[in-house]
C-alpha cells in the first residue's frame, strides 16, 4: 500500500499525457523499442483507451543489430495484442554495411537517429511518444514532457517552451513535431515496481541465464549471432548474466547476476552502485554526447 500511492500518481500522470496527445495531435505514433520502459509505456497506452485499442500505431526503429530475443518478443507482443507495429530500417545504411564495430558513433547516428528521422518524415507523424526518463541522463533531466522539434527534428535546449501545470501546448507549425515523454518523472525503481505490480511481460534478457559472452573494454558483450567478429584470443564463455538495459547487442553490456525473479532484480537494482547507463557503450563516449545526439534529432 505504501508504494502504491506514488505509483498511482505516476500512472495517472502518464495516462493523462497519452490521452492528451491522442486528443490534440494530428498524427501521433508511439515509439516501441522493446525494452522495459517501452513495455511499461505500451501497458499505459493500453490502459488509457481500454477496452478500445490505442488510436495510434507503434514504430520500431530497427538497427538490425538488436538481440534476437527482442525481435521475437516484439513480434509475439504485436500478435498477442493485435497491434500495428511498423518496423523501420535505414536500408541505405544497411546497403553501405554500417555496423557498430567499424563505424562507432556514425553507426548510432545513421542507424538510429537518421533512421528515426526518415521514419517520422515518411509517415508524417506529428507527435512521437518516447519512453525516456529524466533520471537516465543529465540532459534528459532538463527536457520538457512535450519536447518540440524543428523541421529538421532538432532540439533546442536553450529555448524550450514553457510547460505550466498540466496545460500542454501542442500547437506546432507545419513540418515541426513533438516528442512526448509520458515516463519523464519515473525512476528505474518505479519502472520495476510497476512491472511487478501490473504483471507486465518483459523480454527474458532482463532475467539472468547462462549466455555466451566476451569481455571487451570492461563490458560483458553477448555474442548473439555469428556476425560478431571475435578478436584474437577471444572465446565466448558461458556466464550467468542479465541485462539492465536493452539496445543493440554489440553495444549493450550485461551484468553477472543470478537474479531470476522480479523481486531479485528489484533488490539488485536498489542495491546497485552503478547507474543503468553504464551498461550502454555509447553513453560513456564523452560528456554531453546525449545532448549532442538529441540536438541532431535522437530521442
Amino acid at each position: 500500500m505504501s508504494e502504491s500511492t506514488h505509483l498511482d500518481e505516476l500512472e495517472a500522470e502518464a495516462i493523462y499525457i497519452i490521452r492528451e496527445v491522442a486528443a490534440e495531435c494530428e498524427k501521433p505514433v508511439m515509439l516501441y523499442s522493446i525494452g522495459k520502459d517501452s513495455s511499461v509505456m505500451l501497458h499505459l497506452a493500453l490502459k488509457a483507451f481500454y477496452p478500445e485499442k490505442p488510436p495510434f500505431p507503434f514504430l520500431h526503429v530497427n538497427t538490425t543489430w538488436k538481440f534476437r530475443e527482442m525481435i521475437e518478443f516484439r513480434d509475439r507482443t504485436a500478435e498477442k495484442l493485435g497491434l500495428e507495429i511498423i518496423e523501420y530500417i535505414n536500408e541505405d545504411g544497411v546497403n553501405k554495411g554500417i555496423n557498430p564495430f567499424d563505424h562507432g558513433a556514425a553507426y548510432t547516428d545513421i542507424m538510429k537517429t537518421q533512421a528515426l528521422k526518415q521514419a517520422l518524415d515518411k509517415y508524417g507523424f506529428t507527435a512521437a511518444f518516447g519512453g525516456g526518463r529524466r533520471d537516465e541522463e543529465k540532459s534528459r533531466a532538463k527536457e520538457r514532457i512535450f519536447s518540440f522539434r524543428s523541421v529538421s527534428h532538432a532540439w533546442d535546449p536553450k529555448n524550450q517552451r514553457p510547460e505550466m501545470w498540466k496545460l500542454y501546448n501542442t500547437k506546432i507549425n507545419k513540418g515541426e513535431s513533438i516528442r512526448v515523454f509520458p515516463l519523464s518523472n519515473w525512476t528505474e525503481k518505479d519502472i520495476w515496481q510497476y512491472i511487478k505490480r501490473e504483471n507486465i511481460e518483459i523480454v527474458p534478457l532482463y532475467f539472468a541465464a547462462e549466455r555466451p559472452v566476451v569481455e571487451r573494454d570492461g563490458n560483458l558483450i553477448m555474442v548473439d549471432d555469428d556476425r560478431f567478429p571475435l578478436r584474437e584470443g577471444e572465446t565466448p564463455l558461458m556466464k550467468s548474466v542479465r541485462f539492465r538495459t536493452l539496445g543493440c547487442y554489440p553495444l549493450t553490456g550485461g551484468i553477472e547476476s543470478t537474479a531470476h525473479t522480479l523481486d531479485e532484480i528489484i533488490a539488485e537494482t536498489l542495491g546497485s552502485v552503478e547507474s543503468e547507463r553504464t551498461s550502454r557503450v555509447i553513453d560513456s563516449e564523452a560528456a554531453g554526447s546525449m545532448e549532442r545526439r538529441k540536438r541532431e534529432g535522437y530521442f
Binding site: H6, R134, D135, E137, K138, S139, A141, K142, P157, K158, Q160, S184, N185, T187, K189, A287, G288, E291, R292
Partner: peptide, 30 residues
C-alpha cells in the same frame, strides 16, 4: 550534477529546470 546542458557548463549558470529524483524511508522526492 544539475547543470547538464553544455551551454550551462560553459557559462557556469543554470538555463533550464533540472529534475532529480530520490527517496528516503519516509518519502519519494522530485
Amino acid at each position: 550534477l544539475l547543470d547538464g546542458l553544455m551551454a550551462e557548463r560553459e557559462q557556469g549558470i543554470t538555463i533550464d529546470v533540472a529534475y532529480r529524483y530520490f527517496s528516503t524511508e519516509k518519502r519519494s522526492f522530485i
